Simulated scan of single mutants.
Amino acid sequence: MQHSTILPERVMAKAAGAMRHLAHRMRSERPGHVVRGAKALIAALLAWGVAAAWSPGGSPYLAVATALLMVNASTVYQSVTKAAQNVVAKLAGLVLALATAWLFGVTAGSVAVIAVVAVLGGPRRRTDDRLQIASTAVIALAATATAPVGSLVVPVLQTLTGAVAGIAVNALVLPPLYVDESEAAVREVAHSIGALLRDMGDGLAERNLTAKAHTWLHRARTLEKRLTHAEERLRQADESLRWNTRCVAHARRKDVTYGEAFRILRGATLQVRGIARTLADNAHDRHADHHLGQQFLDRYAETLGLAGAAVQEFVEPGAATGSSGASRDRLRGAIDGVLVWHDTMTQLIGRGSLTKPGAWYVYGSLMTDVERLLADLDYADAR
């Protein structure tokens, strides 16, 4: 009876937590949806107002559709490049349709020529552009049978008008920036690395190396997914700063895309994976004389805890501005402690007085990884 009441309570607690997370996400994303909706409305009205006067029947639907496509591009740079590709593809399709109609007439042979040119022409990586050229050419070819050739220019002009309207609105009305998203992604990587280092330190201090070594290795390997996500966010942030009018008023934001911090954390991830792999291999080594001594593990646990705190504080605002002297002192203390410890271990190995001499290469691997990790953090912090 007790289990039957605990299980529903846990399910209800998880459901309530999920609902709170969803509500928070909706509140945080609502302003962005409102801005995008307002920009789309402005771009559509602008394109309609400009193109309606000279469009057949006063219905510039193609201009409005193109404006909506360009204004919803994720960055100003993408809206410009997509607009250029769209207009060039329609112009190429129109020229192809007129050429085939002039040479072969409006026949099945013209459609076959358009298909062959679309498949064989241009580089393979531009498949979408070639398909757009082919579809535009086929539509224009069909239109030549019932409409004057001059009227085929109208769709291209509507596309150009909609593209200009969409780009203008996207560039002038709160152009999108993704600096905050890139910062959050980089911080997530740092916090994951720091948490793993601290967990390894706690596990070593609690004598849980054998039980948790493979779990640590699995978590270290999954850090690559977080790195990939953060790298994509950084690329988007860098792209959002190109041709962005908001950067004129906030020029300092050009230097805040967290690319340098990401590169340091990528190197830290490699060191953490090396530490986790070495501990996992040693935990299940069948040679007893290769196992690490407990005195070494206790000291190494302390170092991993300090390293984890240093990684997490590395991306905090106080550490970035240099106003947090305490974090700097902790980092220097961890580095100095590791260097002294390294000298001590080297002397013990040289004298042959190490408790576990068969594990000297394991000591060296673990010491090298943590030294490199702290050295990278120290170098970045000094810069």
Rank of each mutant, 00 (worst) to 15 (best):
S110A: 14
T228Q: 10
S324N: 15
K225V: 09
E206G: 10
A195R: 11
T159C: 13
A89E: 06
S79V: 04
A185H: 03
G122P: 05
S323L: 11
L141Y: 04
A43E: 03
H342M: 11
V272P: 01
A44P: 06
R10I: 14
T278E: 08
K39L: 07
A280T: 05
A261Q: 15
R246T: 04
A47F: 02
A97E: 04
K14V: 08
A220S: 14
P176W: 00
E188D: 12
Y77P: 04
S135A: 11
V116P: 00
M70T: 02
V119R: 12
G267T: 07
R198I: 13
P60Q: 10
D281F: 09
Q295M: 08
L241D: 00
A251D: 05
G17K: 11
R330H: 13
A237Q: 00
T136Y: 02
A18D: 13
K356S: 13
L62W: 11
L292D: 01
S324R: 13
G259V: 06
T222A: 08
V153L: 15
E232V: 03
A18E: 11
G267A: 12
E206Q: 12
E313C: 06
R36M: 08
I133T: 06
D376N: 08
T107E: 11
G364I: 04
N170E: 08
A195G: 15
L292W: 00
L374Q: 00
G109E: 09
Y61P: 06
V71A: 02
V87D: 02
N244H: 14
A220Q: 02
R27I: 11
H250R: 10
I133M: 15
R383M: 13
S323Y: 08
